[in-house]
Design a protein around this nucleic acid. Sequence first.
DNA 1: TTGTATGCGTTATCAC
DNA 2: GTGATAACGCATACAA
Lengths: 358, 358
Amino acid sequence: VSDSARARPTTLADVAARAGVSRATASRALAGDRRISAATRASVRVAAEALDYVPNAAARSLRARRTRTLGLLLPDLGDPVHGQVAAGFELEAAERGYSVVFVAGYNLPDAERAALTLFREHGTDGIAIVSSVLEPAEAVARARSVPIVAVQPDHDGLLDDPAALPEGTLRLDDASGVEQAVGHLLGLGCRDILYLGAGSRASTRVRCRTAERVLREEADLPLRAHAVGDDAWRAPALLPAALEGALPEAVLCYDDKLALSLVDGLRQTGVRVPQDIAVVGIDDIPFAALANPRLTTVATPTHEMGRLAARALAGVLAGEDLPAARTLPVELVVRESTAPPASREGRSGRLAVAGRGR
Amino acid sequence: VSDSARARPTTLADVAARAGVSRATASRALAGDRRISAATRASVRVAAEALDYVPNAAARSLRARRTRTLGLLLPDLGDPVHGQVAAGFELEAAERGYSVVFVAGYNLPDAERAALTLFREHGTDGIAIVSSVLEPAEAVARARSVPIVAVQPDHDGLLDDPAALPEGTLRLDDASGVEQAVGHLLGLGCRDILYLGAGSRASTRVRCRTAERVLREEADLPLRAHAVGDDAWRAPALLPAALEGALPEAVLCYDDKLALSLVDGLRQTGVRVPQDIAVVGIDDIPFAALANPRLTTVATPTHEMGRLAARALAGVLAGEDLPAARTLPVELVVRESTAPPASREGRSGRLAVAGRGR
DNA sequence: TTGTATGCGTTATCAC
DNA sequence: GTGATAACGCATACAA
């Protein structure tokens, strides 16, 4: 923190002076403008180097009317899934010369609105919203004609019309994931299946519906369902109670966090997975593969989804069209937490054992 | 994306015109300047509201020479620990009216340098660097007199002079954590202890040294040590080999990721934790508590550390002094992955059983 | 190929 | 209490 360091930062004018050219020429030279002679370009570059010149982004943005900045709104940076999306987004953005402003919205509509306003202030050239609870129409309106892509949206309208997604939307093939999971359980011979949801927003309800439909169509069986709070996974001991007393043969959980927590809660009550009950998660976070038993789950390309979001925005800003809404494939990974109920004669555990399957 | 939306955004001049005042007055009114009459302030506010005015951050920054933006440099947004730090940082920053630009540096010196240059371009008012491999002196120099705090630094100089940390540095009490962990293992009766490091940067070596010292001082025992790559935790099956053939009584791992992965790898080879070997991690990520066996680990206040970093920067920008380097307390959480070797008569497993303790 | 001049939207300095 | 005006640092339309 020396005095000289505190001095006024070097500007383009300084560089121009040192190179003996006008500011305009210096500007063009540093931009690599082919109209400037190679010799001049080189000397300007040398001067800039010597003075340790770094352009002022604010001034550039003000003049150029673009910031080379992207905004990313997501529920929570600390969440393993969203962290992964964020990492992919930042990586792709950086590779394309964009920096990223992150805002956490915690699934709060007002926080999300505030984030979009913040992006407007900062003049972000593009916006990605992950798992947003705002209706797409509102989000687009608030983006003020700045390109926006929705990643795995979670607004209520999803329930009414899942197909009506704006351009640029990126989502996981939840339906396929749930189908694969339920199909797997059915193949194992499970008939009494429960869906354990987290929260009551659209995404969990859509998954529940899909599970219900698949179970009905493929086996003419009813689905049991129960929902716990968004943070219920933090209290594993309370989770077995969500199984409604009667232990199902299998549980499909909203995500891996919940599944891993449920497995732990069950262990506390003496219920063994998969011997007494099968558990499936969704996401395939790294710890799903390290759990004991290793978790059977639906692998989702979260990092890639982040990259694709940034790539789509960079594409638009490079003059391309925003790609049509896209659904990314997911794949069931069968591990140890699921097994045929055949192996479950003499199930143990404090919970009552009662099949509700027909 | 209507044409009207694409139109030039409303500026302060528009607001001023609508309110029938000058731009200067409008600016002051919106800033809540007490010299402007309450009536005028109100009418300007109404006009701004009506026109949906949002100030232009670039223009403001250019003129005001501050951006109300903070830069956060960390190794990887997708990592559970750093994600937690990032979440805390963003939360505290937002509460204090700062937005955050994130850059991932992946422990690459050049990437970290580039990030600091980026922050300079953007004129961030403050900078936090998490787990940076740059020497503090270089980081401070590159910050160009912008306040900078180092969170849990990881530069090589740490090895020579752990005490020489610049103001504002925030770090975990690694020494205490390792002491508690080793003390716990010693108390359990473990004599043959191995430290399993990740990578070869300073932080893991410091932990190794501390473990060595504690073991020597408290029990006059030698420490075995082995290091695997930064990403070795992704391949659990390969980890047991790092135990050097002879199964130690206990393993202290660089972090929870590695510990959980090791436990999984051991399970594949038929070695039971904690019956055959005790495993301790560091961090207490959420999944440490959900593992089977639940992981004994050193809990670190990662989210809080992020908050403190943002708070320190906001404090400096509000005129306070940068707080002195601070070491945050950590606490051992004893769970299921550690047990007395007494219970280990007849250890099983494919690995040779050979104590090297005296 | 290079230079001159202007304006981006805001805040701050001065005057009234 | 309010208004005119300058300046922040850069990119670009226009001139040469």
